[in-house]
Simulated scan of single mutants.
Amino acid sequence: MHVVLTSAGIGRIEGGAIAVLDTPYPDPGALIEATGSLDALATARVVRRIPLDGDQGLLAPLVRPRALWGVGLNYHSKAEKTGRPVPSEPVLYLAAPSSVSGPGASVRLPAEETAEMDYEAEIALVIGRTLDRAAERDAWPAVAAVTAANDLTARDVMKRTSAPVLAKSFPGFTALGGSLLSLDEIADPGAIGVRSWVGGERRQDCTGADMIFAIPELLARISRYAALRPGDVVLTGTPAGTGQDRGEFLRPGDTVRVEIDGVLPLTTRVHA
């Protein structure tokens, strides 16, 4: 099932249009927190249909995640490009949920704090069932949905403060969307494609097969230290090709497009 959030409410994508649904939940995140999945939307009554026109009218499908987890250096290609050793443990951090923005959002470059605003295309996971010291075999079935993320990062803030939470928590820096994809639509969680473009130029093109810590292992490892709860979001790292790798950072007027297999494209625009 392919789910979006619009100003008219939660919708399913059907036949190239959005079927707006009769549901008491204000957004898919609230539904997942309450029920653990998107399943209730499969049989929800359609109240009207509206055109699907790119990212026009789409909102962040997860308005305010309970927790927003990220992992640094989780692709072999990224480690090779930067010359850094492959980590033996995931490099984990939390970002402020207030940093979430949606598809088509215009995000301010905070020039007073950073000259190195960077893009990171990532597979994002929405947790549906509690994971607490979970086994790897139980991790993937506990995911409620997959979406796209652009994990924007102020690289110089990261270096200056050694605090990922500060480098990644500026308003709009965690772009999510444009849709949520339920697990029944994903044949192989280890082969999900992730790509990015800046101004129409492809910058990243990889799959989850290149991850250092595959999705089940990553979730199980996080759950050793902190329980993952329904509604939490886990970003799974970015492959090589970021601005950091190229020595070329985002500027006002740039447009970043992120694609995750099966998910509607996620576009972010940068303004001064």
Rank of each mutant, 00 (worst) to 15 (best):
H2E: 14
L5T: 04
R12W: 12
R12Q: 06
R12Y: 09
T23N: 13
D27I: 08
D27C: 10
D27H: 11
G29V: 06
T35F: 09
S37Q: 12
L41P: 06
L41E: 03
A44I: 01
R45L: 12
V46M: 10
L52T: 06
D55A: 13
G57E: 02
L58P: 02
L59T: 03
A60G: 08
P65A: 02
A79I: 08
G83S: 12
P85M: 14
V86I: 15
E89F: 13
E89I: 00
V91F: 13
S98Y: 00
S99G: 07
G102W: 02
G104P: 09
G104V: 09
E112M: 11
A115D: 13
E116F: 04
E116W: 01
M117P: 01
E120R: 01
A121Q: 04
I123F: 05
I123R: 02
I123P: 03
G128D: 07
T130A: 14
L131Q: 02
L131S: 05
R133L: 03
P141V: 10
V143Q: 08
V143D: 00
A144W: 00
A145M: 07
N150A: 12
D151N: 15
L152F: 12
P164D: 09
V165C: 15
L166D: 06
A167C: 12
P171F: 05
T174N: 15
G177M: 04
G178Y: 01
L180W: 00
L181K: 03
L181F: 05
S182W: 01
D184F: 08
D188R: 09
R195N: 00
V198D: 00
G200E: 14
E201Y: 11
D205A: 08
T207H: 00
G208L: 12
G208A: 15
A209I: 03
A209F: 00
M211N: 04
L219F: 10
R224V: 00
Y225N: 11
Y225K: 14
P230N: 11
D232L: 01
T238F: 03
T242Q: 06
D245T: 07
D245K: 09
G247S: 09
E248Y: 05
L250W: 02
P252T: 09
P252S: 11
T255E: 14
V258W: 06
V258R: 01
L266W: 05
